[in-house]
Structure formats: C-alpha cells, structure tokens
Design a protein around this nucleic acid. Sequence first.
DNA 1: TGTACATCAGTGAACGCGCGTTCACTGATGTAC
DNA 2: TGTACATCAGTGAACGCGCGTTCACTGATGTAC
Lengths: 195, 195
Amino acid sequence: MAKKTAKTYHHGDLREALIRAGRTILEKEGVGALTLRACARKAGVSHAAPQHHFAGINDLLADIAATGFEDFVRSLDKAAAHAPSPVERLKAMGHGYVAFARERPAVYQLMFGVAAPLASERLQAAKMAAWKQLANLVSEAAGPDDKEAKAMQVWSAVHGFSMLAISQRLPPMVNIPQALKRVVDGLVPAIGSQP
Amino acid sequence: MAKKTAKTYHHGDLREALIRAGRTILEKEGVGALTLRACARKAGVSHAAPQHHFAGINDLLADIAATGFEDFVRSLDKAAAHAPSPVERLKAMGHGYVAFARERPAVYQLMFGVAAPLASERLQAAKMAAWKQLANLVSEAAGPDDKEAKAMQVWSAVHGFSMLAISQRLPPMVNIPQALKRVVDGLVPAIGSQP
DNA sequence: TGTACATCAGTGAACGCGCGTTCACTGATGTAC
DNA sequence: TGTACATCAGTGAACGCGCGTTCACTGATGTAC
C-alpha cells in the first residue's frame, strides 16, 4: 500500500490503480466512457499494460463494480447507524440507498444495470454482502417469514425509484423529494411490519 | 399500408420497415445489437439508405422506443380491462407491467434504460400516454391527492422489480413469482388506498 | 558485496472489427405541358 | 396519350473513429550462488 513517489518503469500497484482510474472515469464521464484503453490512459500506462493484470475488459469492469458494492454497503451501514428501531433503520437505509444512486449514478448503473453480466470473485462476494445486509434488516423490521420476498419488495421500490430518478426520464410534474418520501414511508405498510 | 410484393428499386415504406426491423433485432439479439447498419441489413437495404428517413441513429432508436411504448400502453389496458374495481385494476396492471418487461426485456430496456436520452415527437407522445394511464389509475384507486407521488410509488415498485428480474442478477434464493405477488399485493397498502 | 540470470511488468506498433456518416452516382417515380 | 424533366430514394465505395487484443520487445526487479 506504500505509494511510490518516484517514477519507476514498473508501476507498483497497477491493478488497483486501474480500478481507481475506472472509478474516476465512471463518475466523471459515465458508463459509456469506461473502456480498457481509457482506464490505461487515466492510469498513465500504455493500453496494453492492463493485460498483465486483467484477463480482459470484463474482469476489470467486474472489479470496478465490486468496489462500488463495497462502498455501497458501507454507505448504507452508515446511513442506518443511528436509527433507534428496525423500522426506522429500514427507512434510513431506503433514503441512503436512493441517495447513493443519485450521487453516483454511473457507478450505480454499472452495479445494477442490465447491460453486461459481469463476474469476478470480488464482485460475487460484494454483491452477496449487499443482499445479506438488506435481507437481515427486513427480517428485523418485519419478521423472518418470507424474508426474501419482503426484501424484494423493499429492493424493488428503492431500486425502481433510483433508476427512474437517474434516467432523467421522469415527467416534469413529478416532485422528486416528495415522491421519494412517499416511496420510503410506503415501505413499512407494504411489507406489513411487525412491532 | 398496402405492402408491395414485387421487388422495386424504391422500397415503398422503408421508414416503418426500419422500425420493424429494429424491433426484431431488439427482441432477438438484444439492445447491444441495435445499430443503424443492422436495421438496414435486416430491412434488406444498403446501410446508407436510412439517411433518407432518419437524421441519425438516435432518431431511429427513438421511434423504435416509441413503438415499444405504444405496445406497452395497449398491453396494460388489456391486462386491466376485466378487473372489477380500481384496486383490482391497479393490481392487474402491476402484473401486466412486469409481464411486459419480462416478455420483451430488450424493448423494455430501450424504453426505460438509463443509456441514451432519446427524443422524437412520437416518443414524447407515447411516453406521456403511458404516464397518464398510470396516474389516472392511481387516482381512481387511491384518490387524487398527491397523485404524482403515489404514481411514482407504484411505478417505482413495478419498474424496480422488472429491472431486477430482467437483469439476471437476483440472488438464487429469491422465488420470483412469490416475490412478484408480494410486490403487487403491497402496492395498495403502500399508497394508502381509499374505498 | 557482486554478479549472472530468470522473471516480471511495462512499451509501442499493428491487426481486424463494426460503427456512423458522407459522397457521387443512378434507377424509379411523379408531374407539367 | 406522350414526352421531358425534376425530384425522390436507393446504391456502393470510402472515411475516420475507438475499441479489444496480440505480439515482439525491453527495462526493472528479485534471487541464487
């Protein structure tokens, strides 16, 4: 992790540097600009260099998506940290969820978009951690019966709202903050919370 | 509309033929395969021919998306046609919504995906018709107050579920039909239906 | 502490790909007289 | 009903683009002795 300051022929930690470069591109230029060559350029190496660290573009994208999930889980944990009850925690996480998506739309899109089925060990683990986080919270707030289906209710609502908000396709009469409040407040009655 | 059977130098209705070709490509090969050249190939003309009918690829894509919305509105109308009450109509439309997305994932993706902000007159009109359909139904089922925000609640839930189901990224423990039932049944308590 | 040498991690040129778009052209169609 | 001619809607070749990937190479690094 000790970052070299001197310029060396060998980079030192190109693998992680490429992932970081990808995150920067993603946030500044969007998911369409996220190519292997662009990551190499941003990291300051020739475009053939990444071949020594990733088998192909999809391996790189998968690990970039994985860092997205890692941030995501941390971000939701933080959002829910100070809520006094499971139900309040669920609502806090709902707001945190949508906030993450709206603040980092391109990362969110890479994580959850329909485009390419990415896969890497790191991504698999990070995705599963995010799902566990959600399922556990729902279970606490609404009981363990039908845990997965209830999690899907919550997930569908916040994911749907996030995608619509991100897509810039909402009709102009929609008041986003007001609608968001309703969506989050509606989570609890929808899953049938238990006291 | 009279389709010519003889082969002529002039196509006769290339504009609509290109849109139809696009729909076929979309459904068979996915949104990534939907290029101007592919549409021209499928329609049996040279790849320069579309220039006489669309200013560029985005104009063609926008009109293909528009036909998607037109089908979509018809499909939901049909799904809700025989429901006995507004609340039942809402649920029927919820199921119809997700069914449309799952049956035509690529078309749905073009219509609602985040990718490109498409625009054409026909698309604008078709999108607005779909929104009106939803907002009216929600208003009937749950009263006119906060109509837009309530519509966003419903839309978020069914859109989110559709996208997740389409994306092939759901964790294996999720039972899709069971989860779908919960999502749709949860719509009414979430928006706070009024009798 | 030196030195020989294997291995690692870069470079830069090249390949082939499909894309959107432009261009000069030409065959087909429609209209004025 | 014929004919001249303008316009429309195609063709096919070409352009430039950025992409992912491959390749022979070379400089840097680490290790055995």
